[in-house]
């Protein structure tokens, strides 16, 4: 079994991805283009925050320092977050929001499928539950990719622009670092490079139907999951997300 400190960091990676993307989507409350789609996106946001709760609670227990899910979500600063850069980027226009959600969800589908077979039983159970939700996220965001890409000239152009802008953030998902390798060796997590073919297949099928061009793999951004260098956007999310808890640290009920 993996050492506590490593497992803790790994659980933060998983939990922070869900927390930050959930927070991003929650920004659309009252601002989505249609009320029906707003409900859909907020359902997804709440799914993600639910996943974050399970993962961060577990992380707090593994750490054994008395921190719970709320302490980890609301009282860590930028450098202690371990999410991929892709989830912290701003929503942008609707095409950009959907495109990011699709690229991340397609990755999470592969990741949770593998994690559902983890040697860590608690993580496997969380992943099995999250997988059911994430499959719907892929379906819904993928359906929108097709409608936007194969829609009007304007929607096609916006979807392609979003895809081109986001592509450089997809490399981090599949580039293993020392922690990924340690987790794979311990049988806790998957070899992230091995998740790529499944992701490629899913993404390529949707892009083909959406008549969108898959960007070339070029320079890839990194630094989120190892905490080396987040984008400037993460601090702004945290400012909004953590303000209340930090302003009223003694509050016991919300």
């Amino acid at each position: 079994m993996a050492a506590g400190a490593e497992l803790f960091s790994y659980l933060l990676r998983l939990g922070d991805d869900a927390l930050i993307l959930g927070q991003r989507l929650s920004e659309l409350v009252g601002r989505a283009p249609e009320i029906e789609e707003e409900m859909a996106l907020i359902n997804i946001s709440l799914d993600l925050i639910g996943q974050a709760r399970l993962l961060l609670s577990y992380a707090g227990e593994v750490e054994g320092a008395g921190r719970d899910e709320d302490d980890l979500a609301y009282l860590r600063d930028v450098l202690d977050f371990r999410n991929h850069l892709l989830v912290e980027l701003p929503n942008g226009d609707f095409a950009h929001t959907i495109c990011r959600l699709f690229l991340v969800s397609a990755f999470k589908e592969q990741q949770y499928e593998a994690l559902a077979r983890s040697r860590d039983e608690r993580l496997a159970a969380i992943a099995a539950k999250a997988l059911k939700e994430v499959r719907y996220h892929v379906r819904h965001s993928g359906a929108w990719m097709v409608r936007l890409g194969d829609g009007t000239e304007e929607s096609h152009a916006r979807a392609q622009r979003a895809l081109d802008a986001l592509w450089m953030y997809t490399g981090e998902l599949f580039t293993p670092d020392a922690l990924d390798r340690a987790m794979a060796e311990a049988g806790v997590g998957p070899d992230v490079a091995a998740l790529k073919p499944g992701w490629d297949e899913r993404v390529n099928a949707v892009l083909r139907e959406a008549t969108l061009r898959r960007p070339e793999d070029g320079w890839m951004q990194s630094g989120g999951k190892d905490g080396r260098m987040h984008t400037e956007h993460l601090g702004h999310i945290l400012a909004e997300m953590q303000f209340l808890r930090r302003a009223y640290p003694d509050a016991t009920a919300w």
């Binding site: 249609e34 029906e36 789609e37 409900m39 859909a40 359902n43 719907y136 819904h140 359906a143």
Partner: peptide, 20 residues
Amino acid sequence: SLHAPDGEMALELARDLYCR
């Protein structure tokens, strides 16, 4: 009832609106 661009999307939005 709900607004949706086509049947498949109507089905997904129905799931999100009425089957929570």
